[in-house]
């Protein structure tokens, strides 16, 4: 039971973020209002929701690409592994923020979906490496050989035997990446590359920039929220990993 707690608690926190205006205590406008009179608290709730959605989309895209590449690389090895790993190296070498900025500015239309895609493209190599290394070690296990001796095709073996066992690493990494993506998205929006009409935490921080002296709450609370959500994601990751681990099931 205790093992499930980390899973329940952070989920609660996220639920709270998304649905109810209950965060820091207050009456009326808990976190004050921004220069345009919008309630900061409500703004944060909407903003967090947006940020999370963007981050989640990015992570899903990332997982798709990374698992695909990592699985093929790790399972088949040989020439295709070399080729894929060199591509991975290239992307890894380039500085993240710069790459993001460059990618986003290539398009005329600014949209959050674009940011999500860009972040996925920038981040997949790291996860692909992890997936690949899991595959490299798992494919040597004799239960894989046993499956092969039953006559299972490679695809079936990957899907039924190797992937589920590699899942726990992917999940942990995915939750860490969600946190990173929220940060990156906020940064990009803050720098002005986001969708100007979208509501996101980064947007709020950026708008409040000029008023740090007078209306400090405009930027500070979103900042704290980013921190809290990041922490929640990490805890969720730990909890999920434990929940998926067959060995700790009672």
């Amino acid at each position: 039971m205790a093992l499930l707690a980390p899973v329940i608690a952070p989920e609660d926190r996220i639920e709270v973020d998304l649905t109810r205006a209950k965060l820091p205590p207050s009456i009326g406008h808990m976190m004050g209002t921004d220069p345009l009179g919008r309630d900061v608290g409500a703004y944060i709730i909407w903003g967090t929701r947006t940020s999370l959605m963007v981050a989640a989309t990015a992570v899903l895209l990332e997982i798709l690409i990374a698992v695909g590449v990592g699985a093929i690389s790790g399972y088949y090895r040989g020439v295709i592994d070399d080729v894929l790993m060199r591509i991975t190296d290239v992307v890894l070498v380039l500085p993240t923020l710069v790459l993001l900025v460059v990618m986003v500015s290539m398009f005329k239309v600014r949209s959050l979906l674009l940011i999500a895609a860009a972040m996925a493209i920038v981040a997949w190599p790291w996860m692909a490496r992890v997936v690949r290394s899991e595959f490299l070690s798992l494919r040597e296990q004799s239960f894989v050989e046993a499956a092969r001796s039953l006559g299972m095709s490679d695809l079936l073996i990957i899907a039924r035997h190797i992937l589920p066992n590699a899942l726990s690493s992917v999940i942990v990494l995915a939750t860490i990446d969600v946190a990173w993506f929220i940060l990156y998205e906020s940064t990009l929006t803050f720098l002005g590359f986001g969708d100007p009409s979208a509501i996101s935490l980064g947007a709020l921080i950026s708008k409040g920039r000029n008023y740090l002296g007078t209306a400090w709450w405009t930027s500070t609370f979103p900042g704290i929220t980013i921190f809290a959500v990041t922490l929640a994601c990490n805890l969720l990751g730990d909890g999920l990993r434990d929940a998926f681990d067959v060995k700790t099931r009672v």
Partner: peptide
């Protein structure tokens, strides 16, 4: 024919701890 063969010949492995899918 190989599919048929797999119902005629099967294998037992050395390491009991890694020859069964833990999940």
């Amino acid at each position: 024919r190989l599919k048929w063969l797999r119902s005629q010949i099967s294998m037992i492995f050395q390491d009991p701890h890694s020859s069964l899918d833990p999940r």
